[in-house]
Simulated assay, not measured.
Amino acid sequence: MVRAFRWPPPPDGGPRTWGPGPGGPRSGRPALPEPDTELIATPHGVRLERLVTGTGDPVTVFAHGLGNGIAVTRPFGSGVTGRKVFFQFRGHGRSDAPEGLWSYLDLSRDLRAVADLSGATRAFGASLGAGALCRLLVESPERFERLIFFLPAALDQPRAPVARTRLLELLSAVESGDASAVAEVVAAEMPPAVRNTPAGWAYLRQRLDHLLRDGLAAGLADLPGQAPVTDAGALGAVTAPALIIACEGDDLHPVEVAEQLAAALPRATLHRYARPGVLWTERADVRARISEFLNG
């Protein structure tokens, strides 16, 4: 039986669980020190937070998911050669949060600006980032030489209501400044089996540090109700090889969206995992699959 999640953590850095069992401190691997990021100016007037790692060519840009950021996308590039460019979309981290309603067109401009300013020839998009990448490719189908879409969440239809509900819960918790409320929402993203493990607590603390320090812009709330593209058929002009990664049973990232995207892209390969939570259960395989595709 999975034991209940607890917050706040025990003062000795636990984690601990309810019920009988070992009670001594069990610390996880120490978190990596926060890297120094920079704010870059873009042609469309929105300053974006960026981190560049690695050296040489080729250059790969990594676009994160809704409510996530650089810290979550960095592990995807661990085995990728060349320079790796990570950034925060508008409304995330230290990036600007311009007034007004935002659309996938705005997100695609953020992604394009970072890619152009960094000289990126390859692109990785996770969830929201995958949608922004699709929108960019509709307008510029030959922009990148290789493409990866990790857990695409929407294509030519808006996301399911559950996605909007989860985002509104996260926005409300972050706005309240209540660490326990934010922890409960973030913990729901994790497989139950890892919530009271050292790795789970380390991830949770990292996410809380970022969300409570930087916040999330209210303008993000409208995005789940929008579709990245109006016609998926327009992606038929994309000639670059593409890898699409999906998970069965993921209600926030339906496998049907990945299948539709794979059918729309002429040179796409779709890989399905049998269950969600692959960053916990299949982490090494995901990293190897990404690096093999991008380095090939």
Rank of each mutant, 00 (worst) to 15 (best):
H253Q: 10
T17G: 04
V46K: 07
T230A: 12
G23S: 05
I290A: 01
E256Y: 11
G54H: 10
D222G: 06
P241R: 03
W102P: 01
F86D: 06
R195V: 02
R90A: 12
R50N: 01
G249W: 15
Y104G: 00
T42K: 07
A153C: 07
P241S: 05
S95V: 08
G215K: 02
T269V: 15
R112T: 12
V52L: 14
V286A: 01
E256K: 04
A274Y: 07
R94V: 09
P152H: 10
G45F: 13
V257I: 15
R74F: 12
P43G: 07
D178W: 09
Q260R: 15
V162A: 13
R47P: 06
A163M: 09
V229F: 10
L101H: 10
R166P: 02
E248Q: 11
E142T: 02
P58M: 12
A237L: 14
L128P: 03
R47C: 08
L261F: 15
G24R: 07
L39D: 05
V278Q: 13
V2T: 11
D96M: 10
R272Q: 08
G296R: 14
G19L: 14
P228D: 06
V255N: 00
L39Y: 10
T60R: 12
R272T: 03
T55C: 02
P22G: 02
T73I: 14
K84Y: 08
G233N: 03
F150S: 03
W280A: 00
G249F: 14
P254I: 14
P228F: 10
R3I: 03
Q206S: 04
A237K: 09
R3C: 07
L294G: 01
V278W: 07
D209W: 06
A63V: 07
P161E: 09
A199C: 10
A120W: 05
T81Y: 06
K84W: 15
G69M: 11
V114T: 03
G236D: 09
R122M: 13
F76S: 00
G296P: 04
S103I: 03
L204A: 05
L220I: 08
A154D: 04
